[in-house]
Design a protein around this nucleic acid. Structure first.
Length: 263
DNA sequence: ATGTCGACACGCTGTCGA
């Protein structure tokens, strides 16, 4: 099975790109983040025409996650158990969508950005990650052999070599010890971050800001990562970061990450 | 050569979020 994750930064603005990627890459399952639309605004038809089922989770122009699958979709969950809320009045955001596809429990995750260190959104980000760890630990406690993929935009660069210049990020989010510890804690719950295992090269990025010519200068961040349960990690035979998707007209600021999973 | 983009609305410019 081929499984991909991609922060598309508006599915409506990039429908043609997403369809072309699905056709070209031959993915069986595509987890999307930042779809930026409500469920009834999602362009389902072009994917369905290719034989995929489309599951969406979006409340507004912000956030939004989806899963597109040609190997079935079952047991759809919007949000994970214990997921924190945000806002006033407090409400769940569309940042997590779980589906079982091709025998794998796939979670499309859009971790909160955090904005600024100390901002309430930063506190929310850390809490969100802690609750995700708890939920993920529970899934393995219930079934040590579970096939689980936690994919998406983590908004954390786990290592200094995951950004072009650590000094630039001094005092900013995405690289703080607290965020990195929250990320490592998912591993502590029994999961393995498989994209680095298969693509270990330093300064290999998945995101480049639109501003300041970050892509031409290759000033990016590796923040789109995949945690796999032990049973699934053992089946991952390769990972590809689709850097070319950052090129051309109207790209997303993130590129897809594709996992090859043995039968 | 370029120095950001997308969605929304009290909408054609300003605001928010990233």
């Amino acid at each position: 099975m081929r499984l991909a994750t991609w922060n598309i930064n508006s599915i409506r603005a990039r429908t043609e790109r997403a369809v072309a990627f699905v056709e070209r890459s031959g993915v069986d399952v595509l987890a999307l983040q930042e779809t930026k639309c409500k469920d009834d605004q999602f362009p389902r038809e072009p994917f369905e025409a290719l034989g995929y089922e489309v599951v969406t989770h979006g409340f507004s122009q912000w956030n939004g996650v989806a899963v597109i699958s040609r190997v079935g979709v079952d047991a759809v969950e919007q949000g994970f158990p214990g997921m924190p809320t945000w806002g006033d009045p407090a409400a769940a955001e569309a940042r997590a969508l779980g589906v079982t596809a091709g025998g794998v429990r796939v979670w499309s995750l859009y971790v909160p950005n955090g904005r600024e260190i100390g901002d309430p959104h930063y506190v929310y980000k850390l809490d969100w990650l802690a609750k995700l760890r708890d939920a993920a630990a529970g899934w393995l406690a219930a079934d040590a052999g579970a096939q689980v993929a936690l994919v998406g935009d983590w908004n954390i660069a786990p290592l200094d070599t995951d950004v072009w210049d650590p000094a630039f990020f001094a005092g900013r989010t995405h690289v703080t010890p607290a965020e990195r510890e929250a990320f490592v804690a998912i591993g502590g719950a029994g999961y393995t971050e498989v994209s680095r295992e298969h693509v270990p090269a330093e300064h290999t990025y998945t995101y480049w800001d639109y501003q300041q010519l970050r892509f031409p200068r290759n000033e990016g961040m590796r923040i789109d990562l995949t945690y796999a349960s032990p049973a699934l990690a053992a089946r991952v035979t390769g990972v590809t970061i689709e850097r070319n998707e950052r090129k051309g007209k109207a790209p997303s600021d993130h590129v897809p990450v594709v996992l090859e999973i043995a039968d």
